[in-house]
């Protein structure tokens, strides 16, 4: 055997096997998650893109290509424009209120006393009931006839409110339910953030002359920046998931007051069977959500680290 042949020339370009380096054994463990990821996330997006460019008969069969017509149709539709505004409004209304309340609750309950632990558990408790049951509870509380809220209102001499058939109250009800349910999560995020602040830093600030207000605005709040970013993204994401009470209670009404984009998407697909337009609407709304979250992540980026 000629031993000199053993010296091979060095390849400059990585070959395909090099790109897949190390995947062999990993693939066995990744397989279940990867299959589901590909089927129900990646294919899902591909399917959305594909259906959004087609026209369908009422039976759901693709009968032609529409190009970008579905997008043009959806985005020029004044009802869908209104729906997008409403979705944006839901985020703009929900995020600040939920953050303020969650932060206030976290500051109030941060000390580790037994009483605080109980109140904390109560603030979190709505999460355990699930969105459907939470919606039942709100439907009952705000029921025009037997609801406790109207009973209290009339008891103290105020007029009863037809919560689900008046515009602003219906919007408040849907948003209020969402905030009531999610404020516990925000509180937990801020509690974790507060406990990550080294007590020494607050002590140093006190000795440096900071009163309670200066301590909060110059130390505590800036040091909560990461929790802030996380809580804002979570709340924004949740503000795009308030379809359940709309579908169950208001059905987009009264007079379009809760006619959210996601509700229109549902209706377009499952009541009007206009699959192409529904997919185009889905993608448009998803794009809007991702843009908002990207902007938030950028605006709230944190430049400092401990250590």
């Amino acid at each position: 055997m000629d031993t000199t042949i053993a010296i091979r020339p060095v390849r400059l370009k990585p070959r395909l096997p090099a790109l897949l380096e190390g995947w062999g054994p990993a693939l066995v463990f990744l397989a279940p998650a990867l299959v589901m990821l590909c089927l129900f996330k990646l294919w899902l997006i591909a399917e959305a893109v594909y259906t959004s460019t087609g026209t369908f008969d009422p039976g759901g069969q693709r009968i032609g290509n529409a190009g970008l017509d579905n997008f043009g149709f959806a985005l020029s539709d004044s009802r869908f424009q209104w729906g997008l505004w409403l979705s944006l409004f839901a985020a703009v209304a929900k995020v600040p209120v939920q953050l303020a309340l969650g932060l206030a609750a976290a500051l109030m309950l941060r000390a580790n006393t037994g009483g605080n632990a109980v109140v904390r558990a109560m603030v979190i408790s709505p999460m355990f009931f699930g969105l459907p049951v939470t919606t039942f509870i709100f439907a009952y509380m705000f029921d025009a006839n037997v609801g406790a809220v109207n009973a209290i209102l009339s008891g103290i001499g105020l007029p009863r409110v037809a919560w689900l058939s008046t515009e602003a109250p219906a919007q408040m009800l849907v948003l209020g339910l969402s905030i009531w349910r999610d404020v516990g999560v925000t509180m937990l995020v801020f509690l974790a953030g507060l406990s990550a602040i080294p007590p020494q830093i607050a002590n140093a600030a006190k000795l440096d002359g900071a009163g309670p207000f200066a301590l909060f605005f110059t130390i505590t709040l800036p040091l909560l920046a990461r929790s802030f970013q996380f809580a804002v993204v979570l709340a924004t994401l949740a503000s795009f998931q308030i379809l359940v009470p709309v579908l169950m209670l208001t059905k987009g009404g009264p007079t379009g007051a809760t006619d959210l984009a996601s509700f229109q998407i549902y209706e377009t697909a499952f009541s009007y069977f206009d699959l192409g337009t529904a997919s185009a609407m889905s993608l448009a709304l998803l794009f809007g959500l991702i843009v908002i979250i990207a902007l938030e992540l950028r605006w709230l980026a944190v430049k400092w680290t401990y250590e």
């Binding site: 080294p198 002590n203 140093a204 000795l207 440096d208 002359g209 040091l223 400092w304 680290t305």
Partner: peptide, 20 residues
């Protein structure tokens, strides 16, 4: 007296510098 009015300065073991 409140710490902030004591006119005392302290250097902490881990320095407690304001990270931000």
């Amino acid at each position: 007296v409140e710490p902030r009015h004591r006119r005392i300065a302290m250097v902490f073991q881990n320095y407690a510098l304001y990270p931000h």
